[in-house]
Amino acid sequence: MENISTTIMTADDEPGYDPNLFCIPKRYAQDLEKVLIPYGLILDRTERLVQEVMKEMRDHHIAILCVLKGGYKFFADFLYYIKLVNRNRDQSIPLTVDFIRMKSYCNDQSTGDIKVIGEYDFSTLTGKNVLIIEEIINTGKTIQTLLSLVKQHNPKQVKVASLLLKRTPQSMGYRPDFVGFEIPDQFVVGYGLDYNEFFRDLNHVCVISEVGKDKYKA
């Protein structure tokens, strides 16, 4: 069954919110241009995405694969809402979780060299209903590389849920099955997303400033 998932569209000229209106660590005071998506809105949208996923994949054992490092906060909140749904169903859905780490960025540019960090046994996904949790789809190259590796081991089905989908001229045209927000072609940090490993500790999805890019440049 093909899933038709609705998406919140964030306009190219979205003004966002003044970071001073939120609880932002003082060390990042000059490093953020704006708060693009506040944490409360992320949580509300995540709860809705979980409802869509559970409707699509109901009554199946789901093997959830979280893409690290960026996806860890989205995954944690996503799993929390899945557990809530499971507790309130007459018949809960069995779940297993696993993690895979991939890397392709240095500073604010993709290196084009997509790597799986460490070892991962893809054969454990054979015959299973796989849900990949990703924080952001940029060009789509990373997720398509991962999907290719997963599908080589014949899962029963594979779905992808991404909190963010970026509108970028570099896009390969890939669109995940479940999308939280479609955002402009801006480099975003926070809520697990980093710039050279900084900003992951922010609760909100924010646009980094030029000052921040220069300060934390590798």
Rank of each mutant, 00 (worst) to 15 (best):
K156D: 05
D108H: 06
D59F: 12
V130R: 13
R27C: 10
D31M: 13
V189D: 02
A218I: 10
T139W: 00
E52P: 13
E210D: 01
K166S: 02
G71F: 00
T139M: 03
G16A: 11
L125R: 14
V188G: 15
C66L: 01
F198R: 01
K83N: 06
L193W: 03
L131C: 05
C206R: 03
R58I: 07
V189Q: 04
Q152V: 12
Q51T: 05
H153T: 14
P38W: 04
T126V: 03
I137V: 15
V205L: 12
I100T: 10
I133F: 01
T96C: 09
K156W: 08
I133E: 06
I208M: 05
A161P: 03
L146I: 10
S110D: 01
F74E: 04
I208K: 04
I133G: 01
P184D: 09
G212H: 02
T10D: 02
F178T: 01
E135H: 05
K217D: 05
R58E: 11
R101D: 12
K128A: 05
D90R: 08
V205M: 04
I208W: 01
T10G: 07
A11T: 04
S104E: 05
S162Q: 15
Q144L: 14
T139D: 00
M172C: 10
I137A: 11
A76K: 00
S148E: 13
I133V: 15
M1G: 03
Y81Q: 11
Y28C: 11
N86E: 12
P38Q: 12
R89Q: 15
N107W: 06
E52V: 07
F75M: 08
T7C: 06
Y17S: 11
N86Q: 08
I42N: 14
V35W: 03
P94R: 11
L202V: 14
F74Y: 09
S110A: 13
S123K: 10
D121H: 03
G40M: 05
V130N: 00
H61G: 11
H153L: 02
N107F: 09
M172V: 13
I117E: 12
D77K: 07
G140F: 05
N203K: 14
V116Y: 14
N86Y: 07
Y72W: 03
S92Y: 10
D59V: 01
K151W: 12
Q186A: 05
K151I: 15
C23K: 09
R167T: 15
A11V: 05
R87C: 02
Q157F: 03
E52A: 08
Q51S: 10
Q170D: 09
Y174V: 08
T7G: 01
T7L: 00
Q109D: 07
G71V: 15
I132N: 00
L79P: 08
D59K: 12
E56G: 07
I24A: 00
V188S: 05
D214S: 04
Q157A: 09
G112F: 02
L84M: 06
A11S: 11
R175T: 05
E197D: 12
T145E: 07
G16K: 02
F78M: 13
I8W: 01
D12Y: 13
D201P: 09
E135I: 14
A63S: 10
P184G: 05
R101S: 15
I143T: 13
K26F: 10
P155Q: 09
D113M: 01
V116T: 09
D18T: 10
V35G: 02
G173T: 06
K128I: 01
D185K: 04
L149T: 00
P15S: 15
A76Y: 03
C106K: 02
